[in-house]
Structures are given as structure tokens and as C-alpha cells.
């Protein structure tokens, strides 16, 4: 039942996408800005054409994004668990976390080049800075969402802190955690690209800068398309992992 409803909504989204493509095509063909706007068909053609060249850039960006992504997760888990268990840590760290998000990373990123060079490190740092906040906040919310009565029940059974975390807190926080991960997965690619804009010799961001300077807007769009596809694939992978790791939640999708 639900399955057909799902495909139904996908069909709707595809129809809308098609409609937008048509509008894009019309604008690209007939408007004043046609010089700077390649049509969808041109973009796809270009993408196929430059794909062999793009591979190395995709690989670099993906590597930076993934390394940053995993560092963010580890960092976020550690900080969230500490905040959840030690009130003092929460009081000290939580406000700073919020403040840290008000810092425009894009303004700081050029400095990272000065501090950390033109290699992968500054890009990974940008990814981590962008990514770890959504995970830490969602995971912390998840850890605090556990039914207090459930924790008390475990305590009455003589459970220690680790057993409470393992049996109740972590499973209860998984839906929150994955919600954060999904946002983060898409941010990670974007973070890496932003990092690459500022310097380097490989990566989708570097590539985009280069082709923009040579006015090859079709290639810019081709790179954008790759970024969109990568982000969607990551999002999907996280969704699949989520479904696999939370069989008890499948009632929402299967029943």
C-alpha cells in the first residue's frame, strides 16, 4: 500500500522536475541570458564529454568529503555523549557550539590555506566545521529523548552507565542521529567544494573555478550536476543504512 503511495510521490516529483527542465530549456534558448546559461541538454552532453577528465576531481572531492564526514561523526558522538552524561560539559560546551555556527566559515576558509597549506587538510577542516554541528545537535537531542522511566527501570535492574547508554540511549537516539547524518552527508560535499574554491590543484571546486574563468558555463553546470548526484547518492546510502540498522522502525515504511 505504502509502497505505491511512495512511487506516486516520486512520480509527482519527477513530473515537476521535468517541468522545471522545460522552463530552464526555454530560458536558455530564448532569453537575454542565454549566453551565460547552457540548456539542460547541453549540460548533459558536456557532462558525458568531460567525464573522463572529471573523475580525478570527483575522487578528490569525495575523499575530502568522506574523511571530513567521518571525523565529524566521531567528534560529534564523543561531544554529544559527554554533554549528555556530564552536566558541566553540557553547560560549558553547548553555548559555544551554537556560537561556533555563527562564524561564517567561508570568510575564514582562505586563512586555512595560509595555516594548513593547499593540500587536503584545509578542505577536510572546512568539511568538519560544516558537518559536525548538525550531527552533534541531533545526536544530543536524541540522547536526551530517552524515556526517563526506561532509564530508571534499567537502573533498578542494576545497570551501569555503559549498559544504559548501550541498551537505551543509543538505540533511542538513532532516528535523530540519522536525521542529522542525512543533512551532513549532503553538506559534506558542499563543504569540500567550498574548501576547494579557495585553492588547490584537484577537486570539483577547483575544476569549477577553472572552467568559470574560461567562461565554459556548460562545464560549471556539469560539475554542479555531479555535486547534486553525489549528494543524492550519499543521502540514499545513509537512508539505506538507517533502515537496515533500525528494523523496529520499519513499521513506518512497510506496514
Amino acid at each position: 500500500m505504502k509502497k505505491s503511495a511512495n512511487t506516486g510521490s516520486n512520480v509527482l516529483a519527477l513530473i515537476l522536475l521535468g517541468l522545471l527542465m522545460v522552463i530552464w530549456h526555454l530560458i536558455a534558448e530564448y532569453s537575454r541570458i542565454q549566453k551565460f546559461l547552457p540548456s539542460p541538454a547541453e549540460v548533459v552532453n558536456t557532462l558525458v564529454e568531460v567525464m573522463p577528465l572529471l573523475k580525478i576531481h570527483i575522487w578528490t572531492t569525495l575523499k575530502e568529503a568522506m574523511i571530513g564526514f567521518f571525523i565529524s561523526i566521531i567528534l560529534a558522538v564523543v561531544i554529544a555523549v559527554f554533554m549528555d552524561n556530564i552536566k558541566l560539559v553540557k553547560k560549558a560546551v553547548y553555548p559555544l557550539l551554537i556560537v561556533s555556527q555563527t562564524i561564517p566559515i567561508i570568510a575564514l576558509a582562505p586563512l586555512f590555506m595560509l595555516w594548513f597549506g593547499f593540500g587536503m587538510l584545509p578542505k577536510i577542516i572546512v568539511v568538519v566545521l560544516v558537518c559536525f554541528f548538525p550531527v552533534v545537535i541531533s545526536l544530543f537531542a536524541g540522547l536526551s529523548s530517552v524515556d526517563e522511566d526506561m532509564v530508571n527501570l534499567l537502573k533498578s535492574m542494576g545497570a551501569n552507565k555503559l549498559q544504559i547508554i548501550g541498551n537505551a540511549k543509543i538505540p533511542a537516539s538513532l532516528p535523530f542521529f540519522f536525521a542529522g547524518l542525512k543533512i551532513t552527508a549532503t553538506y559534506s560535499i558542499m563543504g569540500a567544494v567550498i574548501g576547494e574554491w579557495l585553492g588547490g590543484d584537484k577537486g570539483l571546486g577547483v575544476y569549477m573555478m577553472r572552467v568559470r574563468h574560461s567562461y565554459s558555463y556548460d562545464k560549471v553546470f556539469a560539475a554542479v550536476m555531479v555535486i547534486v548526484l553525489l549528494s543524492m547518492v550519499l543521502f540514499k546510502i545513509i537512508s539505506v543504512i538507517q533502515t537496515l540498522s533500525m528494523p523496529w522502525q520499519r513499521k513506518n515504511t512497510e506496514v
Binding site: 522511566d149 526506561m150 533498578s156 535492574m157 541498551n167 538505540p171 533511542a172 523496529w248
Partner: peptide, 28 residues
Amino acid sequence: GRVSYMYQKDLLMPWKKVIDNVCLPLVI
């Protein structure tokens, strides 16, 4: 850790199968 209690809320853990819920005290 000596006596156990039960509420009107069943407090079964939704993420554990029934058998694992039931044997949770032993595992602990």
C-alpha cells in the same frame, strides 16, 4: 538491583525483539 518493578507503561524497548526485552535483566 534486588527487586524489579513493572509500570502501566510497559517500557519495552522498541528496538529490541520481545525475547531480548524479556532477557534484558539477565544480560545486565
